[in-house]
Design a protein around this nucleic acid. Sequence first.
DNA 1: CGCCAGGCCTGCACGC
DNA 2: TGCGTGCAGGCCTGGC
Length: 271
Amino acid sequence: MPELPEVEITRRGLEPHLTGRRVAGVTVRNPNLRWPVAPELSARLPGRLVRGVSRRGKYLLVDCSGGWLILHLGMSGSLRILPAASPPGKHDHFDLALDDGTLLRLRDPRRFGAVLWTETDALRHPLLAGLGIEPLSPEFGGDWIYRQTRARTASIKQVLMDGRVVAGVGNIYANEALFRAGIRPQTPARRIGRKRYGILADAVRETLRLAIAAGGSTLRDFVGSDGAPGYFQQQYGVYGRAGLPCPHCGRPIAEVRQGQRSTCYCPRCQT
DNA sequence: CGCCAGGCCTGCACGC
DNA sequence: TGCGTGCAGGCCTGGC
C-alpha cells in the first residue's frame, strides 16, 4: 500500500519519537520478510543514538550513529510508536525498543517489507543506489522527465512507476497524477512533449502534496505512526473507480492492465 | 474456490 | 558481444 505519501507520513510521525533517543533493544519475531532480517541487528543496534529519520523513495532511513536501519513497508506494512510492553499481534514482526520505554513496531501481514542494516552510507546501499529523482525535489520538473524519456518505448504510466526514473510513485499516485494532468496512461513516454511534461510534473507534485496533507491513503491496513488512518482515498479521481462517473465529465472511468497492474483513467478527460 | 491487492527484485528474451 | 529495455514470475496474507 504505502507509496511515497504514506512513507512520508510515517517518517514525520516517527521522527520526533526517535530522534535523540538511544536504542535499548531489538526484537525480531519473524525474520522472513522480503529479505531475511540480519541476525547481527540485535548485537549492533543497542546503545546507538538515533540522529534522525529520512526518506528516499519508499525507503525510510533511520540514522543510528555509524549505521543505518533501512525500512521498507512493502505492500502491507505499517510502523507505529507504542508504549512499552504492548502485546504484539500476529503480524508484528519487528520491534525497536527505545530508552524512554517506547517501541517502534513493524506490522506487515504480507511480509513484502524489509528491515535492513548497513554501516556504510545508506544511500549507497544496492537497493537505494539506483533510485531515480525525488519527485518532491526542486530538480524534478517537466524538462527532467522529458530528457529521461527520449529513448523509452514504455508507456508514460510505466515510466512514472519505474523507481529508477522517479522514486516513490506507485500505482495509485501514478493513476491519479495522470488523471490530474489529463494524460492517457498508455501514451508512449517518448511521444509526450516538453509542455505536457511540465503539466505532468506539476500534477505529480500536487497529487503527492495533497495526499500527504490528507494523511495518505488507507485502503485496508495502512495507519500512520500514531495509528491514525489517511483520508486521501476520498479524493481519488480514478483509482478504484472503474465504471463510476469521472469527477470532471461524468463519463464512466475505464480500467485496463499495464504491466500486470490496474490502470484507471477517464477516456474523455485523458488524451 | 479463484482472483485481486498499495512493491519491487530477479531472470529471461529481445533488438540495436 | 554488450547494453538498455521490457515482460513475467515470485515472494506472502487476507478479503471478497
